[in-house]
Write a protein that binds this DNA or RNA. Structure first.
Lengths: 95, 95
DNA sequence: GATATAGTTCAAATAATTTTGAACCATTTA
DNA sequence: TAAATGGTTCAAAATTATTTGAACTATATC
């Protein structure tokens, strides 16, 4: 499992994903719970429509900020902390 | 000099400011040089119009990512690393 | 004073992001 | 099988972000 080089586009995706109040709230919620949560539960807590939820989860996933695994009908989501570490915590190292 | 609490809006401003290829390039340029540079020089290096430069510097400044000081006719710019530290390096602590 | 340089501001044009609702697919439960 | 639940997809509408050029302010130089 070698980590491939990050491009500027990857960074942009990550920062764009973080640059939205709903997605930041989702991240806070997941960070505090620290276990997989279904998309439906999160949408209910955030009080957003499922369509909007679906959109935001896609953005977060494509940025690599969340890991998604499907269990039957529903999708469960957790933070991928390695991505946060790479782009945020170790910002200067990877710039 | 007490650091005041950061709001969600502050975070959004920072991440939005980082979520653009030109601004990310400006940040890389400043990080590598590590001394104050004029807006004009940066605009020339980035090959953007001065209007566009002015716009991007405003975004970066309002996010607190750069410190600007005017010397006569021109404006010099440096990175404000404390902001990067607060929002990126120490992301989890301040979430 | 005239001209050049550094940068800002404004409004219009363009481009990108986000929200919305309806229709849809897959899985579960009655 | 029918109905409910969890989620996606699509296109239209609404909102935001970015670029552009012209006009402008302020300082420097001839």
């Amino acid at each position: 499992m070698t980590k491939s080089m990050q491009t500027t586009e990857d960074s942009i995706k990550v920062f764009k994903a973080l640059a939205d109040p709903i997605r930041l709230e989702i991240i806070r919620y997941l960070a505090q719970l620290d276990h997989a949560v279904s998309c439906g539960e999160i949408s209910r807590v955030m009080q957003i429509s499922k369509t909007s939820g679906s959109y935001h989860f896609k953005i977060l996933q494509e940025a690599g900020l969340i890991i998604v695994h499907k269990v039957a009908r529903e999708k469960y989501v957790t933070l991928d902390r390695s991505t946060f570490d790479r782009y945020l915590t170790h910002f200067w190292q990877n710039l």
